[in-house]
């Protein structure tokens, strides 16, 4: 599968899609050490973000989610890439800071909410991002 969209942060990635069935706040919702979804109320509780291309409409919740993104990148537990529907500043900020600290970074793509909705059935499919 090929995804086209606006490159918010460039890079190349490949991996299986992880399409979130419910919005997720990274702060309080993702364990920065393991990269697992840690919110027990989330339907994908326990899934690992590492190596996956994370697809979601938008991020919600605390602005400290930027800090969690930075820790995931630092710890090597971040997703391989992120695809969002709407503009998001919080997770990208974690990426910009990671770049300044010479941590590894990942591509971040914005594809529009309709495209994200259409990806709902593609969970688990293999996908490549080149940006």
């Amino acid at each position: 599968m090929e995804l086209k969209g606006t490159v918010v942060y460039p890079g190349n990635a490949e991996g299986r899609l992880l399409v979130l069935r419910k919005p997720l706040s990274f702060w309080g919702g993702v364990d920065p050490e393991s990269g697992r979804i840690a919110d027990p109320r989330h339907p994908q509780h326990g899934e690992r973000l590492g190596g996956r291309i994370l697809v979601m409409e938008r991020t919600i919740g605390s602005s400290s989610s930027s800090a969690v993104m930075l820790e995931l990148l630092r710890n090597g537990t971040a997703p391989a890439g992120v695809v969002v529907g709407e503009a998001d500043a919080i997770l990208v900020l974690g990426l910009l800071v990671a770049q300044e600290l010479d941590y590894p970074t990942i591509p971040f793509l914005r594809v529009g909410t309709e495209r994200v909705a259409a990806l709902g059935r593609a969970d688990g499919e293999h996908c490549t991002i080149s940006g």
């Binding site: 920065p32 602005s63 930075l70 800071v97 600290l101």
Partner: peptide
Amino acid sequence: IDGCLYHGDGGTEFAER
């Protein structure tokens, strides 16, 4: 500034940078 609360070493490293 809210960023002074520790969430992990990356936050410390950024401030020290």
